[in-house]
Design a protein around this nucleic acid. Structure first.
Length: 487
RNA sequence: GGUCUCGUCGCCUAGUGGCUGGGCAGGACUCUGCAAAAGUCCCUACAGCGGUUCGAAUCCGCUCGAGACCUCCA
């Protein structure tokens, strides 16, 4: 079964096949670890997770999935500087060494990040590698050197810039994004900083060292240009070093199409002489209650905020699957609750399948093969999870578990086990027996109520039920018995 | 100013030119002293205005509205 993916490079849905046969190599732009990741960031990690799971489970490909950690960057430098209010005790002691301070701050947030993605069901064991930028300084400087040697980079005041004018003569710049240099929004320019570049559109490959900032040696043309990597160059070098170029799929958020990914393509081609990736896939943003969420606006939730509200991270994971990855996801708490209910309907169905069929179960092997084919076909259609789930619900509605014979149940359990290899939000097994601690006084009240009810003294029975309810329990009556549950 | 996406039932989501999805919420009934739980059933929407067509939510045009990106950003 072949996966079709929307490729930003061609702006079309295209059939996917691995470049060099197996395995499939995926590179995902990972986090810049300067703070906690917010729930919008999570989408950029859940999307490639879904992608690689579909490739493994549905297509049967082995996958090499790499996600980088950007651990050197302006905000990391700022927040790890001596005297920064962003420094936390958990990061350890600050030293008189900017490199070490930046590394400590980054490591702290890297751990938090790995924790977070594990919480939402991403398995770190699914990664082939999680490279850190600072572990690849040699690869980065090597690439910068190559670019300069090939005539597409120049040094200015100790920094190295990419020469776009020169590059445009050799290749197309603007493959992922239609670049309209004549109409860059007036008045908005990055860094009115002291770096000197020939053209405003030229981007920095290597930034000259500034006092008190982390830096590394870099020998270029017999001179030491001490400094640090530019933002875009890191991914080019790490992708090349960890997967080899070109690889199969590059993922990231839509905002990275330009300039980050565009520059990545240019750098790798200018330095290594090869393309970066066959497919470029971008996830859309997440909004909260209909408005954009961003770090700069500050209207964001981190995962911890949700957990503190008692939200099950699996509900968050499942809610994200209710919208296709390349459409804006509107995060609402009502939507999260909807997702929870929907998730549990499928969960209950799975539990029910594990029960012994009744004598009257007559429905034989009810189209499980068709269900599987349809659901997987939707997943192969550009990871269309909403449609896939619709198929599942339609099936559940048409075939209540109670009416299914053992053979059908066995087939369905096998299917849901496979499906859970992708969604990973259910428990495959029998309904767990929940044992709850019921205090003796609650038992006593319940028994009194039952007697009152039997005596048709409903006023007393209701009063007792109210007291039980105050203790945090509810009474569920059946015909001739009752049970006590936690409210 | 430039580039682009999108407007579907109360909310979220899917959608092929005709056969009128799915989830949540809501309603009705059964059961029950009541309630809860459970079960059965109901809930016909497609921004507006034109056009193409035998027939459009689906194609074309315009209008209105929402949002994104244009070198911090997942």
């Amino acid at each position: 079964m072949q996966l079709h993916l929307y490729n930003t490079l061609t702006r079309k849905n295209e059939p996917f096949a691995p470049l060099n046969g197996e395995p499939v190599r995926i590179y995902s732009c990972g986090p810049t670890v300067y703070n906690y990741a917010h729930i919008g960031n999570m989408r950029a990690f859940l999307f490639p997770d879904l992608l690689q799971r579909v490739l493994r489970v549905v297509c049967g490909y082995p996958v090499k999935w790499v996600m980088n950690i950007t651990d050197i960057e302006d905000k990391i430098i700022r927040d790890s500087a001596i005297g920064s209010s962003e420094w936390l005790p958990a990061m350890g002691e600050q030293a008189d060494n900017p490199n070490s301070n930046a590394a400590k701050l980054a490591l702290h947030y890297e751990r938090e990040f790995l924790n977070d993605i594990t919480t939402i069901g991403i398995k770190t064991s699914d990664f082939y590698a999680i490279p850190r930028a600072t572990d690849f300084i040699d690869a980065i400087t090597d690439l910068v050197r190559k670019i300069v040697e090939n005539g597409y980079g120049y040094v200015s005041e100790g920094s190295v810039y990419f020469n776009l004018n020169e590059w445009r003569k050799a290749a197309k710049y603007g493959q992922l994004f239609t670049i309209d240099t004549e109409n860059f929004r007036a008045g908005v320019r990055i860094d009115a900083d002291e770096y000197e570049r020939d053209q405003v559109s030229d981007f920095v490959l290597w930034k000259a060292h500034k006092e008190g900032e982390p830096s590394w040696d870099f020998e270029l043309s017999g001179k030491n240009l001490r400094g640090r990597p530019g933002w875009h160059i890191e991914c080019s070098a790490m992708g090349h070093a960890s997967l080899g170029l070109p690889f199969d799929i590059h993922t990231g958020g839509v905002d990275l199409r330009f300039p980050h990914h565009e520059d990545e393509i240019a750098q790798s081609k200018a330095g290594y002489g090869v393309e970066t990736s066959a497919f470029w896939c971008h996830n859309e943003f997440l909004e909260v209650e209909g408005t954009k969420m961003s770090k700069s606006k500050g209207n964001f939730f981190i995962l911890r905020d949700l957990l503190d509200k008692g939200i099950d991270p699996l509900d968050f994971r499942f809610a994200m699957m209710s919208v296709q990855y390349n459409y804006v996801f509107n995060f609402t708490f009502f939507g999260l609750e909807s997702a929870r209910k929907a998730r549990f309907r499928i969960q209950d169905y799975i539990y029910d399948l594990h029960e012994t069929p009744s004598e009257t179960a007559e429905l034989k092997s009810s189209y499980v093969v068709e269900l599987r084919t349809e659901v997987f076909a939707e997943l192969l259609n550009d990871l269309h999870t909403p449609k896939a789930l619709e198929r599942v619900f339609a099936y559940i509605n048409a075939h209540p578990a109670s009416g299914l014979d053992q053979q059908t149940r066995t087939q369905l359990i096998a299917f849901f086990t496979e499906l859970n290899g992708i969604f990973d939000v259910w428990e495959i097994g029998e309904r767990p027996v929940v044992t709850i601690e019921i205090p003796d006084d609650v038992r006593e009240l319940a028994e009194q109520r039952w007697q009152a009810k039997k005596n048709r003294d409903f006023a007393a029975a209701d009063a007792l039920r109210a007291r039980i309810s105050e203790r945090g329990f509810v009474i569920l009556d059946t015909k001739d018995a009752y049970s006590i549950e936690k409210a």
